[in-house]
Simulated assay, not measured.
Amino acid sequence: MGMHIYLEFEEKLSEEEILTRQPQTMRIEVSSRKEAIDKWSAIKKVMPLPQHYEVRIHFCYHDEGKPCRFETIERR
């Protein structure tokens, strides 16, 4: 199978919020780091990042039995 790459948007919760709910997350599969950055550039023109969210690239290696790697693009 191989590695998958995603553009992810994840809500950052306070310590209290973590006890009562899961963060809201959205994931878009992309083919490369460049595609993820280009998609975020296009998306943020029409949808600004809400407070307490992080935009990151998720390099998923689960199919290879390895840990994932994350690269933060923007955080509010």
Rank of each mutant, 00 (worst) to 15 (best):
E17L: 05
V30H: 07
L13G: 14
R56M: 14
E11I: 04
T72N: 04
E17W: 04
K66R: 15
M26T: 01
M26A: 01
I5N: 06
L49M: 02
F59D: 13
W40D: 05
F70Y: 15
S31P: 01
R33D: 04
I73V: 08
E11T: 00
K12S: 06
E11R: 00
Y6N: 06
R33A: 03
I57K: 11
Y6R: 06
M1V: 10
F70N: 11
R69F: 08
E71Q: 11
I18G: 00
H58G: 09
G2N: 10
S31F: 02
V55E: 07
A36N: 06
E71Y: 15
K39D: 03
I73R: 00
R21T: 10
E17T: 06
P50G: 10
L13R: 13
K66E: 15
E16H: 09
P48S: 11
E8M: 14
I5F: 13
K44W: 12
P50Y: 05
E29T: 02
H4N: 11
H58N: 13
W40R: 10
V46M: 10
I28M: 07
I37N: 00
F59K: 15
V46K: 14
L7K: 00
E35V: 03
E71A: 11
S31L: 09
Y53L: 13
E54G: 00
I37T: 03
E71I: 15
F59E: 15
R76H: 08
